[in-house]
Nucleic acid binder design. Structure first.
Lengths: 148, 148
DNA sequence: TATTATTAGTCAGAGAAGGTCAAACTTTTT
DNA sequence: AAAAAGTTTGACCTTCTCTGACTAATAATA
């Protein structure tokens, strides 16, 4: 397990059931023994708006980072996601989406595994590398539109 | 005894009794005093799907190579199919197989629908047309190997 | 109000994996 | 002996993560 994943997990656990989570960047950095900007990295790669997270922050004395989860119904959530997914998706971004789908009961574990396999670099090994991420996004959208 | 055989043996011993084995390429390379790509060679020649193995990996910090062993009960049936599929699959051939899978309880209806969506012409619209059927076959194989 | 202390943000570059491919070498088959 | 098949190596590529120097905003204080 790497640092980013641990921090992600920590944040997910703490936001679970709450409307939002407020944290102090330097505290978390301290807790995980890393530089503060690591927290920004985790947030910007894993708590993205496309997944329904909304992040606010404030600098200066008693500053904070607040991560909120936008409440929405399942179908609205899916619709929003289709809307927001761009034209490209890397394999690791797929993983992040799939985790979220599992926690929102949109796919079960087995289905997520299936999607992951379908879109792995391995499956797409014959695709022109410069197009891979675009095709992955197309496949992903196709799949979730069919699952609503 | 050559290197590749030794490495193969080592991996086989370590996966014995387990569902999967996760290894660090550089560790193994080190252990056997060879270049890392040697491990890829061994895996690609000896831990192939036809022999009941499925391999996933991840790059970057704390990356890994995971070799899973497919359950043997259904695997013979699956491999026969993989064998028959060959390198190309049209969309209509996909449908035929999926129906088969449903009746053999390898996939349920929802999963089959998911697979179908993943491999539709729509999903693959950006793929070079001359490669489409090849990529479809790769995706299909990846999926079913993961579902056994 | 101006200054200073406290935060958080950004971004480029280093680091840490694994992947690919072709060339050289070795062993087996014809 | 020649050809084919299998193995080993290394150079270069891609992806993901982590760090630190520098920047920007806000609050606290003088």
């Amino acid at each position: 397990m790497n640092l980013s994943n641990l921090i992600e997990e920590y944040i997910r656990q703490n936001i679970e059931g709450e409307e939002y989570l407020e944290l102090k960047r330097s505290d978390i950095a301290n807790k995980f023994n890393c530089v503060p900007s690591q927290i920004n990295y985790v947030i910007s790669t894993r708590f993205i708006p496309e997944l329904g997270f909304y992040v606010e922050s404030r600098r200066g004395g008693s500053g904070y980072i607040r991560i909120s989860r936008l409440a929405s119904s399942k179908s609205k959530y899916i619709f929003d996601i289709i809307d927001k997914i761009g034209y490209k998706m890397s394999q690791s971004v797929v993983d992040i989406y799939l985790n979220d789908f599992i926690s929102y009961n949109i796919l079960d574990k087995r289905e997520a595994k299936l999607v992951k396999a379908a879109m792995s670099d391995k499956s797409l090994k014959k695709v022109d590398p410069s197009k891979k991420d675009y095709i992955r996004a197309d496949i992903f959208k196709s799949i979730i539109m069919n699952m609503v």
